[in-house]
Design a binder for these strands. Structure first.
Lengths: 245, 245
DNA sequence: GTAGTTCGATTGTCCGGACATACGCATTGA
DNA sequence: TCAATGCGTATGTCCGGACAATCGAACTAC
């Protein structure tokens, strides 16, 4: 066995997490080749001086990520295919930055408006009560890529225009102590109106990719509702899915 | 405590699974109201005659589904928001049937063709080697909704045209003993070509929603590659996302 | 030679306990 | 009055063991 795994018991990092990270790194690095057996759990636990439940917890987390597959009576194998992150709840800003795209943001509108029926329903606030309205244009390489319109309930986040242009909305929300939990999302397409076309530098009637999203924090409160339109020539949604067993 | 939970030790169904199902049913049914505490794990285990690890395993599976939230020093709470399935690897056919839409399928093409470079790369087969090619039109209420073009490596599934029209491709694959594992997917938009417009009953240049997907089985083998186009007026992708902690 | 059987290996499930850690709240102190 | 401290409580982590279920392969019987 070539792998040199080890755990640091004095570290505050949980042992199962240390192990799962090392295994993940070994898979990423190629030390564990696709299709190879991982060796049985009992022996692995003995070799590391850990108990089997701890080793199992580490392995299970990688199974959940889709990197490993367990087979009763056979063993645990490394999956062949390369698995990307299975579609996180991520912001466009972070996605672009991770892709090395250097996103730029131009805040068009940052004000308070009375909530329409649709927005009030999405955010679970009273109709006509005041909510934040933010309109932004996202550019890459100086070209417009997406038009983002977001609504937030009042009093949650301090929406500074300068900060909005420097970072993403989700980062501001996390910095404000909001723990994002889930989002309901719809992706569609439609023809651009004249105003939309002008904003994005397209022709009227050109196909646009649209996304509507309501985000909830861990208490179930709706913390954001947004309607986004993307130029399909410059953006598409790409992600990896896993089957739930 | 009103909830009457119980487990059947003689059942072959795992105890933790019995418990998680009952809890999920209680949440769905409203017996466990959003925001309510679940009661501490120790007492719950004692009440059911189970050990704490077993109870924790049941709770954890619901946390992973996004139905519960754990807080150290506080307890386990039911999440407020309604959570749908977090975007399964599902087939269009199943989605429609679940929505009560009575999908109809018309198989336009079911043949073998030599693989182009793109298809060969996606399916990891040799270029120009034979692969299945299936073209289908999916209709709801007699109206075309999507045009599906799929490629499969040879010898995996028996692709009977009659069966393809009666059920979905994924069901056929599962029935053939293939265990679907993951898929890489891209959603975009573009203007319809004349041929596409005619097939779907739209005008040329009308916006179309597009999806490209490669599906892998649990050994990492690519088992399907497809390019689909949808009429955006009749279909959009809707799903729930969870943040990964 | 082929089909059925047995058996070893490995994961799946479950137990009962132990200590660490973080949160909320009451108490205490300035 | 307000802030710092301490405590109870709940989850987080970890242990060592036990038995069951399943897979694959070697073996046996026909």
């Amino acid at each position: 066995m070539s792998l040199d795994l080890s755990v640091d018991r004095s570290s505050p990092v949980p042992l199962y997490f240390q192990l799962s990270q090392q295994l993940e790194a070994a898979i990423e690095h190629g030390a564990l080749t696709p299709g190879s057996l991982l060796g049985n759990e009992i022996e692995l636990a003995a070799r590391l001086g850990l108990s089997r439940p701890t080793v199992r917890q580490a392995i299970q987390s990688l199974v959940d990520k889709g990197l490993l597959v367990r087979r009763r009576g056979v063993g645990t194998q490394v999956v062949h295919s390369k698995v990307r992150r299975p579609l996180e709840l991520s912001s466009l800003f972070d996605d672009l930055e991770a892709a090395g795209q250097r996103p730029a943001t131009k805040v068009l509108v940052n004000t308070m408006v009375p909530a329409t029926a649709e927005i009030a329903a999405a955010l679970a606030v009273a109709e006509d009560s005041d909510v934040h309205r933010i309109e932004r244009l996202r550019l890459t390489h100086g070209e417009p890529m997406a038009y983002l319109c977001n609504y937030l309930p009042p009093g949650l986040v301090d929406l500074d225009t300068g900060q909005l242009e420097a970072t993403g909305l989700y980062r501001l929300m996390r910095a404000a102590g909001i723990t994002l939990h889930s989002a309901r999302q719809a992706i569609g397409a439609r023809a651009a109106t004249t105003a939309e076309a002008e904003r994005l530098g397209e022709d009227a009637g050109a196909p646009l990719l649209t996304m509507e999203r309501t985000t909830f924090d861990d208490t179930g409160r709706a913390v954001e509702f947004g309607t986004h339109t993307y130029r399909p020539s410059r953006y598409s949604f790409e992600f990896q899915l896993l089957v739930r067993p």
